[in-house]
Design a binder for these strands. Structure first.
Lengths: 328, 328
DNA sequence: ATGAAAGCGCTAACAC
DNA sequence: GTGTTAGCGCTTTCAT
């Protein structure tokens, strides 16, 4: 493995000059520059990035914590994050927490061990209090998921409004018995529930506790929820699914059980993932501007990395909107 | 930022001893070990990973090149890769090539700049000849996609058999006019086509060139293909979609156009992704053992990383199987 | 415009 | 068992 020393020797120059060429510094004669390039090529030289990182004290890498990549929401979020990252010469280190507190905490060590320059949460398992101290080690941003106690920039959607919109649509379509799916661990989940209940309240509609489901979102969860609904004496006529995947699972299982959607059961999803329009009937849903959320987040990260002084604690809220299709 | 030096001073020991404790070396008195732990805690010390990497000349990181994370096939593959990686103390650096030759080539620099210890291709845009030289810089494996010229271990499926199975099922269900979707850039695509044509050949069925579609797989592609099929004078009665996403797009669009599946058009997918069972009718498909493929690949990577001598050029072939559902 | 020298933080011989 | 020392490969003052 050739080192910068080898290149310098072969080019008959000093290490400094070679380094200047590598880093595109001004004030290097064109002639010597060529000499260096030639030597680098001849030796098949590439700078060792561990050495560069150690010396420069930065990695140009950002950790992105996601619960799982098999939930299609996150690949789309990453798409947005990556676009802006690449434009700014940053690399993404994608970390799956699999909803595990310990794993999440371990990934914070990436910041402490200087393996990444910054970190982005797209979900959060641990309490904010246990996260806060890590701000010392580098910029942290919350994207998608959020905590009001969080003392870092937050890029989020108005979840209260989102679920309010969804519930209202269901109500205005004539439904009074509406089931609700969604975990309420994080603030995101709590806000969604708030918005949902606010709509019900506005129309003086009562909630039945049997119609609340708190499982983690997945297709299987949707199927299970549908079966539970069928086993109920007092059955809802509509269901607000916490995600398109749950909504899809509900629709699929409902049809398997011989139900008509939306006649026997109206379903509304959340996210507007590709699967929403593939379903039969297509899934009415609350659309999140996922990619934009990722882009905005990375823009903030970039500015935090450059303007280290200007501490940013803003909350950026992106628009959310109802997409009417056939399942309601 | 505390360094190992600070810890050593505070503990009243040498850097070496601290280092030994960090790396769990034997032969350190329990008493001094405790002293070190205490000092580390007091100083909130974490070893700088760039320094460790530079010194140890390894990163315990493996680059995984995927075309895109929004194609759900790859998150599942990554799931398999990650399981085994984590068991062996390895980290994954996930790199999206977005089907771009230059990006793909640039990611190879990760190996040259010693930012990763090994690299896994799950797809390949460039010629093998242009990849081969990079073997010098570290272990490379192909997983999923493959090239017969490749001089590295390959973990793959019998694609010829897969598409043969699919085509045969279509034929035995009475179809003689079968459309085929799939790109034929890589060897994987070519093999699939071979298997497909072999089945046709076996049953003396002719292929119509108008029924061949070579676009990149996506839901949109599926929709477009269906519309093209409808515009044909001589229309196929069945279609072998190259992936479940294409199959799903075809089914969705077909129903939009008032067709009955499988009566008016039988559809068979590939992969067995979650969307296959969500469709109405559910999608008959050729199932790939995606997770297993990832696991096997990472096991080989681990062994290459440890037994550096034993050069492994094996081709591991995993089983592939037909899943009969309702779309045929 | 270029080179010499110091040092980023760590590990691993080697010596005792 | 523990400390001393050299050095991984690079960048960046500082001096010229």
């Amino acid at each position: 493995m050739a080192t910068i020393e080898d290149v310098a020797k072969l080019a008959g120059l000093s290490r400094s000059t070679v380094s200047r060429v590598i880093n595109n510094h001004p004030y290097v004669t064109e002639r010597k520059k060529q000499l260096v390039y030639q030597a680098m090529k001849e030796l098949d030289y590439y700078p060792n990035s561990s050495a560069q990182r150690l010396r420069k004290q930065k990695t140009d890498t950002i950790a992105v914590l996601v619960p799982s990549l098999t939930n299609p929401f996150f690949p789309f979020l990453i798409e947005g994050l990556e676009t802006v990252a690449v434009e700014n010469g940053l690399q993404l280190l994608i970390c799956q927490t699999h909803q595990n507190k310990d794993k999440e905490r371990n990934y914070l060590q990436l910041l402490q061990t200087k393996q990444v320059d910054g970190l982005i949460f797209t979900s959060l398992e641990n309490d904010w209090d246990s996260i806060a101290p890590f701000k010392e080690s580098g910029p942290i941003i919350m994207c998608n998921e959020y905590r009001s106690e969080a003392t870092v920039p937050v890029v989020r959607l108005d979840q209260v409004k989102g679920s309010y919109l969804g519930a209202k649509h269901l109500i205005e379509s004539g439904h009074k018995k509406i089931a609700y799916c969604g975990n309420n661990k994080g603030e995101l989940g709590a806000d969604r529930e708030t918005g949902f209940l606010a709509a019900l309240d506005e129309y003086n509609i009562e909630m039945n506790n049997q119609w609340i489901f708190r499982d983690t979102p997945s297709i299987e969860t949707g199927k299970r929820i549908l079966r539970t609904i069928l086993s109920l004496e007092d059955q809802p006529t509509a269901v607000f699914a916490g995600s398109d995947e749950v909504g899809a699972g509900i629709i699929k299982e409902a049809k398997l059980q011989g139900m008509q959607i939306p006649e026997d059961l109206a379903v509304i999803g959340f996210d507007d993932l590709p699967v929403a329009q593939l379903m039969e009937p297509s899934l009415t849903t609350v659309k999140q501007p996922i990619k934009e959320m990722g882009q905005k987040t990375m823009e903030i990260m970039v500015s935090m990395l450059t303007n280290q002084d200007k501490v940013n604690e803003d909350v950026i809220e992106l628009p959310i909107q109802l997409i009417k299709r056939e399942s309601v």
